[in-house]
Design a protein around this nucleic acid. Sequence first.
DNA 1: AGGAGTTTGTGAACGTGAGAACAAACTGAG
DNA 2: CTCAGTTTGTTCTCACGTTCACAAACTCCT
Lengths: 254, 254
Amino acid sequence: MTSARSTRNGTPGEGVSRSASARAPERGIPEATIARLPVYLRALITLSERGIATCSSEELATAAGVNSAKLRKDLSYLGSYGTRGVGYDVEYLRYQIAREIGVTQDWPVVIVGIGNLGHALANYSGFSSRGFRIVALLDSDPARLGEKLGDMRIRGFDEIETLVEELDIAIGVIATPAVSAQDVCDRLVAAGVTSILNFAPTVLNVPAGVDVRKVDLSIELQILAYHEQRKALAFDGAVDIVEPPVDPRVVESA
Amino acid sequence: MTSARSTRNGTPGEGVSRSASARAPERGIPEATIARLPVYLRALITLSERGIATCSSEELATAAGVNSAKLRKDLSYLGSYGTRGVGYDVEYLRYQIAREIGVTQDWPVVIVGIGNLGHALANYSGFSSRGFRIVALLDSDPARLGEKLGDMRIRGFDEIETLVEELDIAIGVIATPAVSAQDVCDRLVAAGVTSILNFAPTVLNVPAGVDVRKVDLSIELQILAYHEQRKALAFDGAVDIVEPPVDPRVVESA
DNA sequence: AGGAGTTTGTGAACGTGAGAACAAACTGAG
DNA sequence: CTCAGTTTGTTCTCACGTTCACAAACTCCT
Ligand SMILES: NC(=O)c1ccc[n+]([C@@H]2O[C@H](COP(=O)([O-])OP(=O)(O)OC[C@H]3O[C@@H](n4cnc5c(N)ncnc54)[C@H](O)[C@@H]3O)[C@@H](O)[C@H]2O)c1
Ligand SMILES: NC(=O)c1ccc[n+]([C@@H]2O[C@H](COP(=O)([O-])OP(=O)(O)OC[C@H]3O[C@@H](n4cnc5c(N)ncnc54)[C@H](O)[C@@H]3O)[C@@H](O)[C@H]2O)c1
C-alpha cells in the first residue's frame, strides 16, 4: 500500500520541519474546525475581492455565517494571526488558512464515471480556483472513450494505475453508479489514491489511512423533509411538539 | 411569511394528533441521529432487495457503516421497534424510519438554475425512488426556456410564485451561480418555500423557520486536502506531528 | 502619558454526541 | 418449566463542540 508516498506537494519551508521547539500551534485541530476553515477562506476571498484589507472577527463571522466566538476559537487553533483592537489582515489570514488547509498549491484530482454528474463536475471551473486541478477523466464505457470535454479527453479506467503514479494523484472522485462504486474505490486505493470523494449512494469500505467523504443529495433532501414534516405537523395538530412542554405550574389554577 | 401553510402532506393517522398522553417517544430527536436515519433507511432497502427479512443491529450497523451501539441508540429515539434476542424486521423498520423522516409520500421539489449541474440533477432518477418528485425546472436565461428534459420543460423563474402555490412546493434546490443565489433564495422564501438545498458556494441568509442545507464540493475537497497534507507531512519531515507532543522532559539533557 | 474604546485570544460552563457495558426481554432446546 | 444463548434498549461515562464572558493587548484621542 506504500506505492505513492513519494514527496507529494508538502508545504515548503514555513517552520514545520523542527521536531519540538518554539511555539508549535499546529498540534491537533478539531474536525469541526477543519470543516469550517474552507468557509472562512471563501469569505476572506470575497472580502479581498471587494478591496477590504482588514476585518474584525464579527464581520468575518457574519460573512461566514457563524458565531464570532466560534470563529475566534477556530482561528486560535492555527495560531495568533489577529491584532487586538484592530482585527485580522484579510490577505495575511487568507494565506495562513490556505496554507493550513494545504491549498496554496494545486492538488491533482481524477474523476471516475463521466456520466450525468461526471460531466457537470468536469465542466465546472470552480475547482481550479480553489486549489484543485482535474487532471484525468475516466470511464469504463467504451462508447465514451475519447470524448472531449474542455481540454481533456475521457480515458479508460484501466489507465488508473499509470495515471496515479505519473501524475502523483492523491485525490479521487467517484461518480459511477452505486453498484460499481466499491470496485472503483478498491481499484483507486490499490493504485495509491488516499482520499476519495464519493457521490454514489453507498457506504465505501476502505483501509485505515484512506479518507472518504461522501456527498449524498438524497440524504440532504431527506433531512430537509424531516424538518419540513415537523413544521407541517406543528401547524396542523399537536402544537407543543416543537416547544418545550410548558411547566405545569403555570396552569395550576385550572 | 404564512402564505403556504395549507395542510401539506402531513403523515396521516399514526397517533401524533394527541396532545400529551400515552407514550410519546417523538419528543426531540438529535440532529446527528436524523442525519443518519437516511443511511439506515438505504441500508434497509438494500437488505430488503436481497430478500433478507430480519437483521440484527450488528448487521445493520455494518451495512450502514456505523457502530452498532450508536445504531441502537439512534433507533431507540423512534421507539422500540426491535425484538430482543431476535433483531429487527427489515420491512417494518424500513417503514417506521421512512415515516419518521417523512418520505412515505413524495415531496414535490423545484430546481432553480438548469445549467451544468441543474441538468444532471434533473436527469437523475435516484430522487424519485427516495421520496422526492422534481415537479419544476426554472431558469432565468431566455435561451433555455422551453428546452425539454425528460418529460419536463424548463420554465421561467418568474413562474415561481404560481408554481409553489399550485403544486404546494416546500423544497427548493438552488443550482445557479453564486452571485444569483441569495436573490433566488429570497424569492423562493417569499413564494413560500421553507426548505432549501443550496449548491452555490455562498452563505445564504434566511428568516427563522426556513431550513437551508448546503452541498459544497470545494469544501469537501479542501477537507480531504487538509488530511492529505498531514499524511504527506507525516512521511516527510516531522514524524511526531500526528502523535501527542511527547513531553519535553524526555529531551532534558540536550 | 493616560484613559477611553475596541477587539482578540482563551478559560470555564454548558450542551450534545459517542461508545462501553449491562440488565431486560426474547428464543429455542431439553 | 428451566436454562443457556442471543440481542435489544438504556444507563453511565467520557470526549468533543459551542458559547459566554473577560483579561490582555492594541489604537486613538486628548
Ligand atoms: N446525476 C445526479 O444528479 C446525481 C445526484 C445524486 C447522486 N448521483 C449519483 O452519482 C452517481 C453518478 O450519477 P450519474 O447520474 O452521473 O450516472 P450515469 O449513469 O449518468 O453515469 C455513470 C457513469 O459511470 C460509468 N461507469 C459505470 N461503471 C463504471 C466503472 N466500473 N468504472 C468506471 N466508470 C464506470 C458509466 O459508464 C457512466 O458513464 C450515481 O451513483 C448516482 O447515484 C447522481
Ligand atoms: N457544475 C458543477 O459540477 C458544480 C460543482 C460545484 C458547485 N457548483 C455550483 O453550482 C452552481 C451551478 O453550477 P453550474 O455549473 O450548473 O453553472 P451554470 O452556469 O452551468 O448554470 C447556472 C444556471 O443558472 C441560471 N441562472 C443564473 N441566474 C439565475 C437566476 N437569477 N434565476 C434563475 N436561474 C439563473 C443560468 O441561466 C444557468 O442556466 C454554481 O453556483 C456552482 O458554483 C457546480
